[in-house]
């Protein structure tokens, strides 16, 4: 089975927001809405501080609560790669999925339907990387099949310590951050 996921190197990311702009351009998200964003987490006490910058988006979870709660099947798992998608014409805008996502990855589009990152499935199906991955100037983002031990993402995960966000929420996130 193909399980698409991302591996992002926090040692390279400088928080330039190029991924945010690339997504906005590629997916034409409405003004005030974005499908990916940057977080800054500061640890320690002055003067011994460290900061981790991360590019974040929908985690395309293995066990997505946003899909199981959806009353119409609009939120669904794509048969190829396990990408979590939304069929806009089946969405009634009930917001259950928005409330159910531990990552606040979803919003209601001004046109009424739920919306979020698609892993740029339209590009991936053409063999391209998602827009955010392809523009990153520090090459800190990697995209591929987590189930294929030979893939770049699997090798990175095998060779370096990493973490996912909020694994305790139990949804099985598929975006990993190299420490």
């Amino acid at each position: 089975m193909t399980r698409l996921g991302m591996v992002i190197d926090t040692r390279r990311c400088v928080g330039c927001q190029d991924c945010v702009v690339a997504c906005k351009t590629e997916n034409r998200t409405p003004e005030g809405y974005n499908r990916d964003w940057i977080t800054y987490a500061t640890k320690g006490r002055f003067p011994t501080l460290s900061m981790t910058i991360q590019s974040e988006r929908c985690n395309h979870c293995d066990d997505p609560p946003c899909v199981s709660c959806c009353p119409t099947g609009a939120s669904h798992v794509h048969p190829w790669g396990g990408v979590v998608l939304i069929d806009h014409d089946a969405c009634i805008g009930c917001k259950a999925c928005v409330v159910s996502c531990p990552y606040d990855a979803r919003y209601i589009h001004p046109d009424g339907y739920a919306d979020k990152c698609t892993f740029c499935i339209h590009r991936v199906e053409r063999g391209q990387d998602p827009a955010c991955v392809s523009v990153c100037p520090t090459h800190c983002m990697h995209f591929g099949d987590l189930d294929d031990p030979e893939s770049e993402v699997s090798r990175l995960l095998a060779s370096r310590p990493h973490h996912a966000n909020l694994p305790e929420a139990g949804t099985g996130p598929r975006i990993f951050y190299l420490d």
């Binding site: 964003w37 987490a41 500061t42 320690g44 917001k95 409330v99 919003y107 209601i108």
Partner: peptide, 21 residues
């Protein structure tokens, strides 16, 4: 160790967790 400060640039409406009224 959990961070002492956390900032996110995600500001879309509903990101504050009040989708239902």
């Amino acid at each position: 160790m959990s961070p002492s400060e956390f900032v996110s640039t995600s500001h879309h409406p509903l990101a504050d967790g009040h989708a239902w009224g």
